[in-house]
Write a protein that binds this DNA or RNA. Sequence first.
DNA 1: CGGTATCATGTTACCGGTATCAATTGCGAC
DNA 2: GTCGCAATTGATACCGGTAACATGATACCG
Lengths: 334, 334
Amino acid sequence: MSTRVTMRDVAEAVGMSPMTVSRALREDRTVSAKTRARVRQIADELGYVYDSTAQAFRTQKSGFVAVTLPSINNANFAETFRALTNGLGEMSLQLLLGSTNYRVAREEELVRQLLTRNPEALILTGGHHTDATRSLIQGRGLPVIEMWDLPADPLGHVVGFSNGDAMAPIVDHLARTGRRKLAFVGASEGADMRGAARRAGVVAAARARGLPEVAMIDAGPAPVSMRHGAAAIEAVGRDVARYDALVCVSDPVAFGCLSAVQRMGLRVPGDLAITGFGHFEVAKVSHPRITTVNVQAEDIGRQVVTLLQGIFDGEVDTAMRVDVGSELVVGETS
Amino acid sequence: MSTRVTMRDVAEAVGMSPMTVSRALREDRTVSAKTRARVRQIADELGYVYDSTAQAFRTQKSGFVAVTLPSINNANFAETFRALTNGLGEMSLQLLLGSTNYRVAREEELVRQLLTRNPEALILTGGHHTDATRSLIQGRGLPVIEMWDLPADPLGHVVGFSNGDAMAPIVDHLARTGRRKLAFVGASEGADMRGAARRAGVVAAARARGLPEVAMIDAGPAPVSMRHGAAAIEAVGRDVARYDALVCVSDPVAFGCLSAVQRMGLRVPGDLAITGFGHFEVAKVSHPRITTVNVQAEDIGRQVVTLLQGIFDGEVDTAMRVDVGSELVVGETS
DNA sequence: CGGTATCATGTTACCGGTATCAATTGCGAC
DNA sequence: GTCGCAATTGATACCGGTAACATGATACCG
């Protein structure tokens, strides 16, 4: 069994102390250029691989930033994640990702697990958590950022937008173009809190505009996607024509609805308007293009990075609340 | 500064040694049930959080399995990832994810970084790597699994399918239904090796069936998705009608092509057949449904888990090669 | 030329768990 | 009561880096 190559081995080969090797490999300028080069070369020759675990242990800095996402199969979250990876990578931080499948209980378990890795910050998607999650997080000095939401009672910092408020422009737009009988298509009440907030936003906006009560079309438990939207409309059948507009919880759901409606021979937007949420690629590409709301997923990631930089540099003392906003993008389905 | 709660603190509070606390928290049956319960309770009261870093350091087992994916914004990879998360979670292993953006140079950097975390296994998507990556990996005892491909010269174990061979049934199907003038729509030569393999598979199959040379429609650098497919077809314009069939590198690209073609007023499959790859949701839901190839992304994840179990249990000595296959799914676009 | 600043390197201890082996206790059998 | 064995618990060392401080060598100053 060839035991692994450590700094000590490199040091011995170089004829210097482990400390010097450590410094050399970290580009410490107190080590002479000559020594540094020699250490590098010999480390390579021996196939030395640095042990981040030991470093994390000794320095009590893991180099990890923990992130929870409801689902990794979501273009918007993926974009945020990519922005985080890039931004934090430049700060030599590595993302430790966990996916909650839209369940707060799973989130709790995940946070528990992630915390044992001693992350330097915790980034949660959404603002709803179990009490246990909250108490797990509180009290440690750990910076916490909730994103993709603007919770009323945040755990720490917040970078997001109001899922409820974001729906008002859609309802406005539909009302202005003469639609009155709206139906909301989304997941069943329960796990997806951002979806629920959007639903509530639609209901409130419709009331404010004096529209009739919004009908609810249930697409099943979260996460809901294209096929759930299509199946929900198929279940409703041609009765769907009794609505003026389908307001969907997300673009994939909207696309599912669009396909199902087209399949029935109804015309969009002639017979029925359809709107989505999230500015997913499918909304931009589909025929007709789906009216949606752009939430600037990438910007959320970038803002989180900026915020974390400020936190690590000690420039942030109070809990920040960044509203990245959202904007209506009118397509061809309304 | 309230220094963190350690096992020693818990031990002191309980009035026992840290060793006993360690055992109690790990459900070691040599600790009496009474002691275990007391330790648990006091640990909770003190807000003790276990330190996996210390454990990883001492035991030299990180509890990590490193995974590289080309892109996390891909439903198929996401499905594999989910299967891995679930399966490995049951073995108390945590995934350490990195995304390569379809670039082998980025993969090299990523592998280097991941290896410093001392993972217990390394799972790579695809079978093409830089020489440096290969030499980084070789020689350590680390189990390596390449997935989503069947490389000729594997690094270790393999769970995947042949991207080239998977295209033959598509070409067969198109040829049988009278299509002769095929065009392949995919990323430019370069980064995406699985895409290139698919392209080569189409060219080879077309030759074998005596079809005319396959035309190439370039959708730009990888990763290519819906909008790149659409843009590529828009660039070609109505000349696209000179082809019988568009064979696309993936379902999202196929969907982009479909939309663009429909937008031009051409009929699918009347004027033109379109095929995709990957059995993405969009292929099942779009109107018309896209003919595609099902690659069983989830099964790949499950097989990798099974394989890893075998490896950790010492039941696997030789390099395994698991072909999960693929199957044509005929839709309405051909 | 002595004294001090600067640069390069070394020594020691320690981060928080756990493997290993030793010690103690409890209990039934004889 | 004593012995033997199992059931518990404890003591010690160690995993591989690096912070903090110490040391030795060299340069530079008046």
